[in-house]
Design a protein around this nucleic acid. Structure first.
Lengths: 192, 192
DNA sequence: CCAGTTTTGTACAGCTCAGTCAAGAAGGAT
DNA sequence: ATCCTTCTTGACTGAGCTGTACAAAACTGG
C-alpha cells in the first residue's frame, strides 16, 4: 500500500543501461540517469539506493536482454558453423551501425575498475562464462555430428573462439574497416 | 633561462601513465597525479596544461615503452611460431602477476569514451595498427620460409591472431584461470 | 648584484558530483 | 472520511573536482 509508483522499474533500468552503455560507469552522472529515466533524484534513490546498485541492475538487465538474445541466437537451428559465423557477423553489423560505438556493456565494464570489484565483478564474469559454456556446447554438438573436427577438446576450441569474439568487439570500437573485421571472422572460422 | 625544472618530464609522464593505467582516465583525479608524480598542481599544469594532455602523453609513452618492447620482442630471432606463442605467454604471465589487473593501457583507453575522441583516438588506433603490421610482417616471413601455410593472405592471418590476442587480454582481466588463457594460446597457434 | 624569466607551492574560484531531506501528493485500509 | 504508508518533487549539502592566480623562490645573463 501507499502511493503507487509512476514508473516501470524495468523501463527505468533499461534507460539507465543505455546511459552506462554509452558513457561507462565513471563518466555517467546521476543527472544523466535522471534525465534519461525521467525520474527525479528522490525517486531514483528511493528505488535503487545508489548509482552503483543501478549499475548492477543494468548489467543484470543487459545479460537478460542483449547477451541473452545472442545465446538464444546460438541455440537456433542450423549448422554449427553457420551459427558461429552469424554470431560474429551479427555483432559486426550491430557495432558498425552504432554511431556511439558502445560495443559490449559487459566487456566495457570489465575494462573499468568499477567493473572488477564487488557484485559487478561477478556479473561480468558470469556473462563471460555463460558465453563460454554456450560456445562449448555448440562445439560439442558440431563434433558429435562430425561437422567439426574432434581432434581438440570442445572447451579449448570454444575458448579460442570466444577470445577471437571479444577481440573482434574491441577492434570494432576503434576501426571503421569492415574488411579487417571480416578477416577476423574468417580466421576464427578457419580455426574451428 | 629562468628557474630550472626540478623534475624529469619523462619520469613524470611515466608516473602519470601508471596512474591512468591503474584507474582509467575518468577515475583518475588531478590529486592522484600530483601525489604520484610528486609535482604540485602549479608545476603539473605549467608543464602539461591539462589532465587530458597528460593522458595523451601517457599513451604516447606507453607506446614507446611497453608496446614498443613487445614489438621488439616480436622482432627477435627465433621461429615465427615461437615468437607468436611467446608474445601471448608473456602477457599471460604479466597480466596474472599484476594484482591490479591493469591489462593493456591502449585497450583500456579504447573502452572509455575519452579514448575514442580527439587526439587520444589516433594514438590508440596507431597502437592497434602497429601491432597489426608487426604481426603481418612476421606471418609473411613465416610463409616465406615455409614455416606457416601460405593458403591465406598474411594480413588476414595477422588480424585473426591480433583479435585472439586482444581477446586474451580482456579475458585475463576477469579470470584467474590460467588454463583457460592457455587454451586461447593453443587455439590461436592452431589457427596459424 | 640586479633585472628578467621561469618554476613552485598553495590558496582559491567555480563547478559538479553523489546522495539527503522535508513537504506535499496519491493511493489503500478501516 | 481519515489515517497511514509510500512515492514524488526539488532544493539543499558537503565533498571533491579541474583549472587558475599569485607571490615567493631559483636560476641566468649582464
Amino acid at each position: 500500500m501507499g502511493r503507487p509508483r509512476e514508473f516501470s522499474e524495468q523501463a527505468v533500468v533499461d534507460a539507465a543501461m543505455e546511459v552506462f552503455w554509452e558513457k561507462g560507469y565513471e563518466a555517467t552522472t546521476t543527472e544523466d540517469l535522471c534525465a534519461r529515466t525521467g525520474l527525479g533524484r528522490g525517486s531514483l534513490y528511493n528505488a535503487f539506493g545508489s548509482k552503483h546498485r543501478l549499475y548492477e541492475e543494468s548489467l543484470r538487465r543487459y545479460a537478460e536482454t542483449k547477451a541473452g538474445a545472442q545465446l538464444e541466437q546460438l541455440a537456433e537451428p542450423g549448422s554449427v558453423r553457420d551459427r558461429l559465423r552469424d554470431l560474429m557477423l551479427g555483432v559486426i553489423e550491430a557495432d558498425m551501425a552504432d554511431p556511439g560505438r558502445r560495443g559490449c556493456l559487459a566487456l566495457n565494464a570489465a575494462s573499468e575498475t568499477a567493473g572488477r570489484t564487488g557484485a559487478v565483478a561477478g556479473l561480468v564474469r558470469g556473462q563471460f562464462t555463460d558465453l563460454e559454456q554456450a560456445l562449448c556446447q555448440l562445439v560439442r554438438l558440431g563434433q558429435a555430428t562430425g561437422e567439426l573436427s574432434s581432434d581438440r577438446p570442445p572447451l579449448r576450441v570454444a575458448r579460442a573462439f570466444q577470445s577471437a569474439y571479444y577481440g573482434l568487439r574491441v577492434l570494432a570500437k576503434v576501426t571503421d574497416d569492415r574488411d579487417a573485421l571480416l578477416d577476423v571472422v574468417e580466421g576464427a572460422m578457419a580455426a574451428l
